[in-house]
């Protein structure tokens, strides 16, 4: 099983640590603040109160067996850069670091972070996307040119098959999955719906009124699809 270390247990770090632990992963949680460590201590495999920017202290934790380290001391820019450097020296296989500015992110990459994340910026973009068009349920960029979007099926699509839509030809956007809310009756006799997911739907599969579509495509392509009512 992959072993994770989360360094910096602010709101972001502790939520990453707890989610990983809930999924059954081995998690070593680290912070220099005793209270923050105490808060999640009994929910993760191991927790330590230590200043991770202290090279000796970090070495003493046996971090070389860690597969993925998440450095989420973003606000303390200097500390996060030092920690990434030390982790790289120790030989941690994968380092993911949280950045607060573009420059901070660029430095983290330079000193050895395999992946830099900007949670606040990304969340801001997602919220803006969903506010700008209420039919967008979720949105995330998967590269500098492409994104993945979860969109409520536009009226124009209802009752049509994927091949009828000619989406790929017109916009180069493809439907990766269809989430459908299917009406059911519970054992208690109440009406309810259950969600079914159709991964890689076939060209003849039809779009329903209660569908949301998970689509992948270029920014321009996705923009075109979002304009369809």
């Amino acid at each position: 099983m992959r072993q994770f270390a989360v360094i910096g247990l602010g709101q972001f770090g502790s939520s990453v640590a707890l989610s990983l632990a809930q999924k059954g992963c081995e998690v070593l949680a680290i912070d220099r603040d005793q209270d923050r460590v105490d808060e999640i201590a009994d929910q993760v495999s191991q927790s330590v109160t230590v200043d991770a920017a202290d090279e000796k202290a970090l070495h003493s934790l046996g971090m070389k067996d860690i597969d993925v380290a998440i450095v989420s001391t973003g606000e303390d820019i200097e500390a996060s850069i030092s920690i990434v450097l030390i982790l790289k020296e120790i030989g941690v296989k994968e380092i993911i670091a949280k950045a607060v500015t573009q420059i901070h992110g660029a430095i983290l990459k330079k000193v050895g972070a395999d992946r830099v994340i900007f949670p606040e910026r990304d969340m801001g973009e997602r919220i803006a996307e969903s506010l700008a068009s209420p039919n967008v349920m979720d949105y995330s960029e998967i590269s500098e040119t492409h994104s993945i979007v979860e969109l409520v099926a536009p009226k124009k699509f209802w009752g049509k098959s994927i091949s009828d839509l000619k989406l790929e030809e017109d916009t180069k956007v493809s439907i990766a999955a269809i989430k459908r809310k299917v009406p059911v009756v519970t054992p208690e006799g109440e009406t309810e719906f259950k969600e079914e997911i159709n991964i890689r739907p076939r060209p003849e599969d039809k779009i329903n009124r209660s569908d949301t579509l998970i689509m992948i495509g270029s920014f321009e392509g996705i923009q075109k699809v979002r304009g369809i009512q």
């Binding site: 349920m137 409520v152 809310k181 009406p183 109440e190 009406t191 309810e192 719906f193 209660s210 949301t212």
Partner: peptide, 12 residues
């Protein structure tokens, strides 16, 4: 109202 809610949620 409950059934109306279920139906509206089903169509997002």
């Amino acid at each position: 109202y409950y059934n109306l809610g279920i139906t509206l949620e089903a169509i997002s």
